[in-house]
Design a protein around this nucleic acid. Sequence first.
RNA 1: GGUACCUUGGAUGAGUGGCUUAGUCAGUGGUCUGCAAAACCAUGUACGGCGGUUCGAAUCCGCCAGGUACCU
Length: 301
Amino acid sequence: MNSLVVLIGPTAVGKTDTSLAIVSHLGCPIISADSRQMYKGLEIGTAMPTKEELARHKHYFVGQLSPGDYYSAARFEEDVLRLLENEFKNHPTMLMSGGSMMYIDAVCNGIDDIPTVDEITRATILEKYEREGLESLAAELRILDPEYYNEADIKNPKRVMHALEICYMTGKRYSSFRTRQKKKRPFNIIKVGLQRDREELYERINRRVDMMIENGLIEEARRFYHLKDHNSLNTVGYKEIFKYLDGEWTLPFAIEKIKQNTRIYSRKQVTWYRKDGDIAWFHPSDIEGIINSIESRITEE
RNA sequence: GGUACCUUGGAUGAGUGGCUUAGUCAGUGGUCUGCAAAACCAUGUACGGCGGUUCGAAUCCGCCAGGUACCU
């Protein structure tokens, strides 16, 4: 059976280097699972692999979207599965590497088949939310879909709005689309996690942010300033610089905030991965251990 | 040397005698099925020191320490 090696770990832990090492060994392309590196032009702020690295190994899902494009975890699932079907013909083992937990989860476990919300419905609900407030929407959801209402995170506007969008658009309950079942994949999934002590990770984050500034993050952000309301730019590293450009924050403060928000992000990632018992954890310096672990799990199947 | 004011949890900052550890940020833990580097949730008994008044003090009084402003 074919295998998909999934390399995960918090931001700045060293996934790029490790993934290059793995791929050199396996001789396959890299599937990036990073919701922000997908956008063209966000090279510095998303710590995209360098041109050389991109040239040395084929990378999928890096720098292919425009910052204004719509994309989602569900699309990623679809796109990756289609790609894998094709790539497995030549490469029995493939590598996916990235830090977007939800995207990785979508590929490994699947997302239920829920229709994509159209612009009109989205705008309608958003306007309703802005006019009537969250409680009003929640009350409506309670009537339209009591089952979901009872289990949902009612204080989270995004969740409530999305459920309502689906109810409005399809005329059915949002919960009727949720099977909450994991999808079976026609390939073996080998999860490898990278971890470092928190102190070590935080130091790397701080250093990397300083490097980004040196390398021209401010200029890069300035180029995308006009798109700052798009989700792709609602991203650590850019949103803080936008505040600086708006004159709201001083530069040193914005830089401090980038470091802080990156640390917070890394912690969220760790939290997400913690509950996944299928991950074999390694320090990034232990390339040999990582390769051995992958090899042993490939041959096991 | 004198006078006035200030001193609250990692930061900021309300609170003038009991009802409540205010709130915000950070930190930490967590949620997660269609914008996820998003969004959301949980979590801090602190009141400069010592003594006094009081049934009860962060809150009133005294002394001490530190700070700020003004005066000589």
